[in-house]
Design a protein around this nucleic acid. Structure first.
Lengths: 172, 172
DNA sequence: GATTAGCGTTGGCACGACCAACGTTGTGTG
DNA sequence: CACACAACGTTGGTCGTGCCAACGCTAATC
């Protein structure tokens, strides 16, 4: 049943090193106190995912992907609304949209009905770019999930989704 | 093969906004393409965890916690070894150990048997500090895990642990 | 004795999350 | 109508984190 992980945590030893010979070359384990912190685990998983991602695309493509995906799924949005959907600061959205606009992936223009807003629209080029990034992301995802079988992947994803649902109303 | 987890993903709608009235005030959902990326989910969980953590302690305490926990569990270590255990760069360990040494949480001295190394030892003050941080971390953890019952928490933790085990040999 | 490898340190870069301030524009209210 | 108020987009800055590069030192290897 996947071993409880939670266990005691209170087993500090004090020999300077020790290293029994059969784990000399094995991977050094992080301390139990960290291994039992979900927030630490999630952070590590995130950076491993980032490393895998970086092998398939420039890092900045991650922000692009988020914006493009939102536009594809919800249609044209203002930048503030993008921020709310994605859980990002509107400050940071600004830069990403600028980049996407410069490469023609997106069309940004003042909303005629409310000139405070910028209406951001997905272009055909943007849709194509979205597909590219999705492809790279799938590969990175596959690398990240090595070691988990189908059922475990689905379970993990479902649990993370449920956790996130419980926290959603905090955009930034 | 392997794109598992990700269901269709190809259901883009195109109405500019729509917003059915019963979710007008509800939390805006992130796009499906993101919700089906474990690496994105993990990132979000990580930052939500960081926010929760920040409510209970200074952010830098997280790095301190990692180092202190490793020293408590494995005894005195060199900085390079700390890096390997924690999956961190030895560059970054240096700064953390300096901070911990300055506050007396740790004793750093040249290893008499190999003067290239710094032997880092946990002090009593350090052990106390570790307990403090653990306490704060527990509270943050509880906030983060709101919305998951006991069994789900254990399952999530176990799945993350298994995923990490499959990637361990990459310190930096 | 010379080369190679490991260690700790400094300094730099990129990225993400966040906060503060400003000018602009729409929405109220008196 | 004039006014304060709120929302928007932008710029500029801070902090924490993950990386790479280089240096001087020490130990192991040949």
């Amino acid at each position: 049943m996947l071993r409880a992980v939670n266990e005691p945590v209170n087993a500090p030893r004090s020999q300077p090193v020790d290293e029994s010979p059969d784990e000399r070359d094995a991977a050094p384990r992080p301390p139990q106190r960290l291994r039992s912190l979900v927030s630490w685990q999630a952070g590590k998983v995130s950076t491993i995912g980032a490393r895998a991602t970086a092998r398939h695309m420039p890092l900045t493509a991650r922000a692009d992907f988020a914006v493009l995906a939102a536009l594809e799924e919800f249609g044209a949005l203002s930048q503030a609304e993008l921020g709310r959907r994605l859980g990002l600061d509107r400050n940071d959205i600004s830069g990403t949209v600028t980049r996407l606009d410069a490469t023609g992936s997106v069309d940004r223009r003042a909303d005629p009905g409310d000139r405070r807003r910028n209406l951001v629209t997905l272009t055909d080029a943007g849709a194509a770019r979205l597909q590219e990034i999705q492809h790279a992301a799938d590969q990175a995802q596959a690398e990240l999930l090595t070691g988990l079988d189908q059922a475990e992947r689905r379970a993990l994803q479902a649990l993370l989704a449920k956790l996130l649902d419980a926290h959603r109303p905090e955009p930034a």
